[in-house]
């Protein structure tokens, strides 16, 4: 479908060009078609399989860690659940391009209060479910009581997601736009502390999103290398710059400090590094040329 609409634009372009007095009598439509056909030819089978394997592995771990989190939560172990919360979510955040391809499962698992349509609704309402509602219970209410059903629902949703991702078809677009989307997630909500407004564990999500994008880059590396070595060098540098900055905020146990401990200067530096990574990362689509 997309292919044909693209083609018709080109034909329209050809008509316009004809009015520009091109001296050479050529069929202007056929050149872009040739180029477009080339786009479809690039063989990424191995890369797509590698990415699917990665995503499935992440989803396995996500289910295991979510089971563990829900178990602690339902046992009323507030401190245990708090400790398990952010690390469990990282598996989801790493593979978000896949996880979010299933309609309402993503909001059911990962929806924030701010994502709920009606302002003020959500805290006590059924329509807000998932990790962030339990985050609210743990950090804001300091309780697990009354939230057991939400915990059960989270586990059920995680299982459903796990089952669905087995069937997912990974496309080149999913990988390429997925990598940039992961960075955009960081730029719009993690860097502002708007993802984890109660636990302030935003840096865990931040790190996981970056790792998810880096994985896609690693899988596509050899293909990119063949097209544009300089781009690969740039991406290596820019990923390192972000990772180095994040490392400054690691804690002794391998976790991350609270978002609230970051200064304006810290967040600005992180944000700039992500943006500088995002620009070249958005060029990975050249492998499809």
């Amino acid at each position: 479908m997309k292919y044909y609409s693209f083609l018709s634009v080109l034909i329209a372009g050809g008509i316009l060009m004809a009015g520009c007095g091109n001296a050479e009598k050529v069929n202007k439509d056929s050149a872009p078609v040739t180029e477009q056909a080339k786009l479809e030819e690039v063989d990424l089978t191995a890369e797509l399989t590698a990415y699917k394997d990665f995503a499935l592995d992440q989803m396995d771990q996500f289910l295991i860690e979510t089971e563990n989190f829900v178990k602690l939560f339902k046992a009323g172990d507030i401190e245990g659940a708090k400790a398990a919360y952010a690390p469990a979510r990282m598996y989801f955040e790493r593979s978000e391009p896949i996880a979010e391809s299933f309609g309402d499962l993503d909001p059911r698992i990962d929806g924030r209060l701010a994502d709920i349509q009606e302002e003020g609704k959500g805290k006590g309402e059924e329509e807000w479910t998932g990790y962030h509602k339990l985050e609210y219970a743990l950090w804001e209410e300091n309780t697990t009581a009354g939230y057991e059903a939400i915990a059960d629902q989270l586990l059920a949703d995680a299982k459903e997601l796990h089952a669905l991702v087995q069937t997912v078809e990974v496309t080149p677009d999913l990988m390429i736009t997925g990598a940039v989307d992961l960075l955009n997630e960081v730029s719009t909500s993690k860097i502002t502390g708007e993802e984890e407004i109660y636990s302030h564990t935003d840096l865990y999500d931040f790190k996981a999103n970056i790792e998810g994008a880096e994985k896609i880059f690693e899988i596509l590396r050899s293909k990119l290398d063949a097209k544009d070595k300089e781009l690969v060098t740039t991406l290596d540098e820019k990923f390192k710059a972000v990772d180095d900055l994040l490392a400054l905020h690691e804690t002794a146990n391998g976790g991350y400090i609270s978002y609230e401990e970051l200064t304006g200067e810290n967040t600005k530096a992180l944000s700039a590094a992500v943006n500088q990574l995002g620009e070249p990362l958005s060029q990975m689509g050249i492998i499809l040329e």
Binding site: F6, L10, P32, E35, Q36, L39, P172, D173, I176, S282, Q283, M284, G285, I286, L288, E289
Partner: peptide, 8 residues
């Protein structure tokens, strides 16, 4: 513009 719509 280039024909590759997969890049910005």
């Amino acid at each position: 513009l280039t024909p590759n719509t997969r890049v910005p």
